[in-house]
């Protein structure tokens, strides 16, 4: 891994069209600005780990009594539903 030292407002360029700016530093908190083309996906790394964890959890929930679970789910989906419709 390449390690660089930067001060606030200094930048790093990656390739032709990605630029990273150190916006502010406060204690162990660093604010970073990223300029990149729209087709470059930028995510906090822990977000991917969260999806991995959630997927594993989802799988372990479906292992048991498959048919029973899906019958019960259908019943519940058919009656109670559902998301707050005022969410926006």
């Amino acid at each position: 891994m390449l390690v660089l030292s930067r001060k606030v407002n200094e930048k790093i360029r990656i390739g032709e069209d990605i630029e990273i700016t150190i916006v502010a530093v406060a204690g162990d908190n660093v604010r970073i600005g990223i300029q990149a083309p729209k087709d470059v996906k930028i995510l906090r790394s822990e977000v991917y780990e969260e999806v991995q964890r959630l997927n594993r959890e989802a799988v372990s929930g479906t292992k048991l009594q498959d048919q029973e679970v899906s019958d019960r789910l259908k019943e519940m989906l058919g009656s109670t539903l559902l998301f707050d419709s005022n969410r926006n």
């Binding site: 999806v51 959630l54 997927n55 929930g61 479906t62 009594q65 679970v69 789910l73 519940m76 109670t80």
Partner: peptide, 17 residues
């Protein structure tokens, strides 16, 4: 993907993100 809570199915969640 749904995460089904087997102990209380009404607490099941879905991953919209």
């Amino acid at each position: 993907i749904m995460t089904i809570s087997l102990s209380n199915m009404s607490k099941s969640t879905v991953n919209l993100r």
